[in-house]
Design a protein around this nucleic acid. Sequence first.
RNA 1: CGGGCUGUGGCGCAGCUUGGUUAGCGCGUCGGUCUGGGGGACCGAAGGUCGGAGGUUCAAAUCCUCUCAGCCCGACCA
Length: 569
Amino acid sequence: MRWSNLFIPTLRDAPGDAEAASHKLLVRGGFIRQLMSGHYSLLPLGLKVHEKVADIVREEINAIGGQEFLLPAMHPRSIWEASGRWDAIGDEMFRLQDRKGADVALGMTHEEIFATVATEVNSYKQLPQIWYQIQWKFRDEARPKSGLLRVREFAMKDSYSFDVDEAGLDANYVKHHDAYVRIFERLGLDAVPVQASSGAMGGSGSSEFMVRSDAGEDDVAMCSCGYAANVERATSALPAVDDDTPPPAPVKFATPGIRTIAGLADIEGGAPANRQIKTMVYVVDEQLTLFLVRGDHQLNEQKVIDSAGTANLRPATPAETLKHLGANPGSLGAVGVSDDIAIYADTALSGRTNLHTGANEDDWHWTGVDIARDVNVAHWTDLRDVNAGEACVECGQPLEIVRCIEAGHIFKLGTKYAEALGATVLDQNGKTQTIVMGSYGIGIGRNMAAIAETHNDESGLVWPMSVAPYEAVITAVKANDEPSMAAAENLYTELLAAKIDVIFDDRNERPGVKFKDAELIGIPYRVTIGPKSLESGEVEFTTRATGDTISVAIGDVANQVINAVEAAR
RNA sequence: CGGGCUGUGGCGCAGCUUGGUUAGCGCGUCGGUCUGGGGGACCGAAGGUCGGAGGUUCAAAUCCUCUCAGCCCGACCA
């Protein structure tokens, strides 16, 4: 294409409200424009990159046997009611009514719809299947942010696997895992698979593919040994705490005005935070429930949700704690609490004794509490935040907490959706089996932003060849110099014939403008043709990533470009 | 949803505290001249209901009220 004919509105200044590098550069480079919060127009350059990302994803999913579909973006209420998600989801689903007043939803994911299609699979002989689409999702995010990184309307590759049993699911999960590794490698993203919470999707396991970036929204605990887990799932090894010998029974301890862990640590007869029990009170499915962690630990709410098996929970109000436990926050504890209040305790409290905790009476605490003896723990589980520097559970080395962008997420769903929608097959024994599903997602635009976020410098974007809007640019330095324009035209024709995705900057602009624009939009290779060097039969060949420029004979430059592009594809 | 901030030509901003000429600057855009290897110079020009509504006032970009929108932090995130 000739630059002079294209719409590439580059800007010298980024929009004042953009913070993330990818946001600034995608706007400045003329890739995207915002329509409203969380909704962006893809301009021609942006669409080009978007499609290249999508094509890589498509190729790799096709390579593991995926079959492409295209499902509706608008869904009837009934199908979401069948899975229970019409009510479970809440404000994040866009809902509207048609002219008859019927409720419809804009699809935020397609488990239900694909499961419905899968009701036409009737025999184990037709399995396994991998079905996918690249389609628009709508999510009414509470806070869209950072350009394309978090939006309300976006293209997603969502694939779904269908198997007769768990072993089949495991195989398809691995296939997707491996395909994702190849996809991110081709996108130039250093994405690390990490253990993740399945959240409200349900199912037995999930991994996220995480790209290190300060612009991300997730924290991941990582170890040099390869252990990596979202902090919603991560654990760590803790050194033992010396508890001494406890008294035969807890001892009540007057603590007037003491309302905090730190306060209890400071007073005469108190105890350091790691020898206290912190009692957090939630209302889970309308039931008051206690969650206990060590005094110096933080409760992780996703772990609370995962332990409780529901997202229908909230912290109890002070009035509720007073009513059910008899005290206000600051004096709460689990000692002697009746059986009808469920108690979850963090595993770091297991085996501990001689602890301090609230006595459910304002201004009083217990000391000498032995958790096994004195607290009626119903569920031992992992509830606490992992902190940087704590020991890796695999190898003992200190963990690092790394901010990441979630580039992909794969789930083992199990039978939840197939069962809800009635997707079953007959097995080899003629017995009805519910199809076992997996679900696998990659946001196309978010990956585009993640690449931009991790591939830029002071001059602009530095796209990997695989997704660059153009593979090479021919910059004619002087638009009214006939010999150099003729040489540029010849090279342009030659590169097009060789199937190089090349753009010819034929604009009547000063060279500085052209160089800046080419660098801003991040084209990997540039050939500069101007009267000066052409006098001696040479042109310049510049590599965007390194800035290196070499002189090449005009007759050799086409091959130089072709070889460089093909090597980097 | 809680906290903080911002809305003035396409983009970036000043003006607002203390109301008062024709609302200004840089970039970009259009015409022209000179230029031509890193966002060039000069001359001329177009383009703005100052987010919206209401109010105070002789007079509102500026003060007051309401409202809409956007950004950032947090909560949330299938």
